[in-house]
Design a binder for these strands. Structure first.
Lengths: 335, 335
DNA sequence: ATGAAAGCGCTAACAT
DNA sequence: ATGTTAGCGCTTTCAT
């Protein structure tokens, strides 16, 4: 094992408690002793066992980040932002992937209850229905901040982007580009963010001169093969859409694939815009018009909120919704 | 706080140790008592505090994953593989990003020494020179498995892909496509994997009928702006290359950008092949020929090795190098 | 200013 | 089969 405070006390002929206090720079320890302790500590390269002190009511210094996946560029960027703040604040980041499986999410979150982590940043699984495991955390004094895929029922802070507005803007943008028949590639019905994006879409269609009955919404899942079949079907219909909004990165690239397969030309035959954080959106063929989410910022903000709460004695977090706007970046896929 | 074993003992009128043993399904506890304990435990939804038991020489159940970055699709896929195995084995994954900063890497790894994690999976920072912090881990019985960017000096297991062969194959492939003048976009000189890829490239050039003196190697860094300047310079020269090998994902997409800027046509004017795990390589303009690394597999393999060691009493890992081959996937960028 | 001792939640001898 | 006890590494009263 590594060196312990006990060993240091022995070597320095001090009481354990004296060393402990010296290390925490207590005022009741003489400067001389502190100096001696610090010198020795750096000599033997001592690091305290974080979990020993976590037992005495102090914190483990670990936070959990629960994500649906890591392949989506939004989430990898979010991890980036979270990890950056965590490193600055001296926290450690545990990453958990739910793969959009509610059962997995429950099992993962259940494991947070007994000191493993001090708090959690969660982007919920899209098929997450029963949210008891999430309520449970707050009741056990594990503060939670939701980001992106939030759970509005739980009384805490959350960080989102302006999904409704972006759904609206994306639609209007396509309309301004001449689209008359726009399809929205949705996900499961459950997610608040998708709902918001979709409602923005609906609203824009309603307000437009487009035939409101023509608002097409395709509900997709995580099954890539099935998604592509559904999209193929949509794009093979006689009155196929001339515009597509991809509600998440995955379905957008899937739409690209289908267009390629069916030899439908983007943006001539159909225009595509997608919610995404892809760094290389400009390198696609054609370059993809995106609603670029502030992923890094959202991660930073969410973790900052969490750490602020962790630094207090009462870790309860007031309900608050922070909105960080996305930005529409026009590129080749919309002509 | 949450419920503890002590509380359970009290409620059930049992000794603490009896409850503890029952929970660990000890043979010296009667079936009846076990049943009583298990029933109560699930009733009150008890989860043991992992760090309390970690103090008693047991494990924390946490492993560290140290990566240069998460934006590279290789690393996100690797996390995917690691997290999957970890979840199966009941381990928890702590993610650390070095951003290729050796100082940061040292600080991060130093923090592993006192029980924070049971073991670590590391892909070293590309400017990591002084490897004392890595040796240090083994000497403190924190087993380490390196993957991708390995540190060959440390005596442990590592998981890599066949970098030398791939550098060789990539070069031969470009030659077979008619390239006469191939540039290799390298990174810092320090990384073993880049060296291997580069040596494979050199060898192939040497064996070819190409003028060996024409093997061009460009040393790039993490500074995107500077990289692009250097690449621009290279591609603006009068005898500019007609083939490019990108040693990592980032420099490959940077080469794409420069070609676009300079209106150099891929693959007509220049052919490009890149080491990468990009899921959407086929959607680029033109689609990118890749040497696709088995990122997920490498993550799985590395973590499996680590967990195997953690399950033993003696966690020492024998030196061993596991090679999982990459595959060259021809696409549009090589004509 | 320093030290002794109790205790965080749990495990593991060692009784009984 | 169950209980008592010591102790993991640390913090924190409460003495001295």
């Amino acid at each position: 094992m590594s060196i312990t405070i006990k060993q240091i006390a022995k070597d320095l002929q001090l009481a354990i408690s004296t060393v402990s206090k010296a290390l925490r720079d207590s005022h009741e320890i003489s400067a001389a002793t502190k100096a001696r302790v610090f010198a020795y500590v750096s000599e033997v390269d001592y690091t305290p066992n974080p979990y020993a002190s976590s037992l005495k009511g102090r914190r483990s210094g670990n936070i959990a980040v629960v994500l649906p996946e890591v392949a989506d560029s939004f989430f990898s960027e979010a991890i980036n932002g979270i990890e950056k703040v965590a490193q600055e604040k001296g926290y450690h980041v545990m990453v958990y992937l739910t793969h959009d499986d509610a059962k997995k999410e429950q099992a993962i979150v259940r494991d947070f209850r007994n000191g493993r982590v001090d708090g959690a940043l969660i982007s919920i699984a899209s098929d997450s229905q029963d949210h008891r495991h999430l309520f449970d955390l707050s009741s056990r004094n594990i503060p939670v901040v939701f980001f992106d895929r939030i759970c509005a029922e739980v009384d805490t802070a959350s960080v989102v982007t302006n999904d409704y507005q972006c759904g609206y803007d994306a639609t209007q943008y396509l309309i301004s580009k001449g689209c008359k028949n726009i399809a929205f590639l949705s996900l499961f019905d459950d997610l608040q963010i998708i709902k918001n994006r979709r409602e923005g879409f609906r609203r824009a269609v309603l307000e437009s001169t487009l035939d409101a009955h023509k608002d097409m919404i395709l509900y997709l899942t995580n099954d890539e093969t099935k998604n592509k079949e559904k999209i193929s079907e949509l794009l093979s219909a006689k009155n196929r859409p001339d515009g597509i909004i991809g509600s998440v990165e995955k379905v957008t690239t899937q739409a690209y694939d289908v267009c390629n397969n069916l030899a439908i030309s983007i943006p001539n035959d159909i225009k595509i815009i997608g919610f995404s954080h892809l760094q290389i959106a400009h390198l696609l063929n054609p370059s993809l018009t995106t609603i670029t989410q502030p992923a890094f910022e959202m991660g930073k903000t969410a973790s900052t909120l969490l750490f602020k709460s962790l630094e207090k004695k009462n870790t309860a977090i007031a309900r608050e919704q922070i909105v960080i706007p996305s930005v529409l970046i026009p590129r080749g896929s919309t002509g």
